[in-house]
Amino acid sequence: MKAELIKVKMADVQIGNSPAVLITYGLGSCVGLTIWDSKLKWGGMAHIMLPTSKGFSKNENFAKFADSSIEYLVNELIKMGSNKRNLEAKVFGGASMFSFESKSDILNIGDRNIDATFNSLDEFGISVVNRDVGGNFGRTISLYLETGVVEVHSIKNGNKIF
């Protein structure tokens, strides 16, 4: 039987149970975050666009931002019965796809997204067990909820396991 594939769009958060697979396609400067419960074999994935929801309207889609997506994911998993100690985070993406002659803030958005994700995870006391960040290439990531393995696909490096 083929496991259910749950797609996570840009600025989206999804939660699933083993043996489903969570997948998000084509991360560039965006960050793909997975949080997996190693004991209960469930978890979630976020496709994050921006570091912080501060300064944005309350009506904004919370899943655009690192801080609010992480808050949502952690709270939901705890509501389901997860213990924080069993939650393992992995962080992917945050690339700089183009190299420009002129520099501006936006060009470092990948780095800023990565930093914000790590900071926010730290605030919530979630440990980061693996990462594949930066570079100048796109990534598609799949979280296998049965094993917690994340497969990273890129044009540059093919498939890698994290």
Binding site: Y25, G26, G28, E60, F98, F100, I106, G138
Partner: peptide, 27 residues
């Protein structure tokens, strides 16, 4: 116009920087 910036990759990863830039100003 700026100088061209080249990428050969997945569409999502090519466009997401533009989306991020716009997302800071508009929904």
């Amino acid at each position: 116009q700026s100088t061209p910036a080249f990428a050969y990759d997945m569409c999502g990863s090519i466009i997401d920087m533009i989306c991020i830039e716009l997302a800071q100003k508009t929904t």
